[in-house]
């Protein structure tokens, strides 16, 4: 009887070891249904982007991409501007470095930290601090207008959302109120 008990224990141990060994992961090769490859997406460490907003009725919704979780176009005659909402990991470049990068896109020279501070405004909306930056190019375009960027940055958990309104300055100036109202509709789901 004793030996029988020992045998049972040994058998149980072997089964256990076998099951544990099965759990060991190794290189796997398998076929999957065809999948359309996605474009690059720099995701934050939060699993989902729980951000909601309501866009003004005159903004035309454009297809989203993995970089842009929100994408709109505003047109006034032959002039237009695009608004995008892009999530990036918190701390993706300092604010100063980002502003200078945007300035570079508008062919403006970089600014010192002191000069940059004057450009940055903040606004408290729904218990979140939104940073606001306005940059206008000095180079006139063919339609006598200049390019402008109106950018708002807000951080929720580990994600920084860049809300970038970029395009013709006349469109952006006339839509500034709508832009602020749009920011006021933004809510985060905790």
């Amino acid at each position: 009887m004793k030996f029988q008990a020992v045998k049972i224990i040994l058998l149980c141990s072997l089964i256990t070891l076998f099951l544990v060994a099965c759990k060991e992961t190794d290189i796997q090769v398998y076929n999957t249904p065809k999948e359309t490859p996605k474009e690059s997406l720099a995701m934050a460490s939060k699993k989902d982007h729980d951000i909601r907003w309501k866009s003004p009725s005159n903004w035309e919704e454009l297809p989203k991409s993995n970089f842009r979780i929100g994408n709109y176009k505003v047109s006034k005659g032959n002039r237009s501007a695009e608004l995008s909402i892009s999530p990036l990991p918190k701390g993706a470049g300092s604010l100063g470095a980002n502003i200078n990068r945007w300035r570079g896109q508008l062919q403006l020279p970089p600014q010192t930290q002191e000069e940059l501070q004057k450009e940055i405004k903040t606004k408290q909306i729904n218990n979140k601090v939104f940073t606001l930056v306005e940059i206008t190019s000095q180079i006139k375009q063919k339609n006598n207008d200049v390019q402008k960027m109106l950018i708002s940055i807000v951080t929720d958990h580990d994600t920084t959302y860049f809300i970038k309104f970029n395009g013709s300055s006349s469109v952006i100036n006339s839509e500034k109120k709508n832009f602020i109202s749009f920011l006021e509709t933004i809510k985060f789901h905790d």
Binding site: I27, Q28, V29, T32, K34
Partner: peptide
Amino acid sequence: DRSNPAHDRVISIPDTLLAKQGTITH
């Protein structure tokens, strides 16, 4: 490998092997 029009062929290396930081062949 997406060359087959019927399906994609995936060769998957688990993170446990990546953490060992060696050279992997298959």
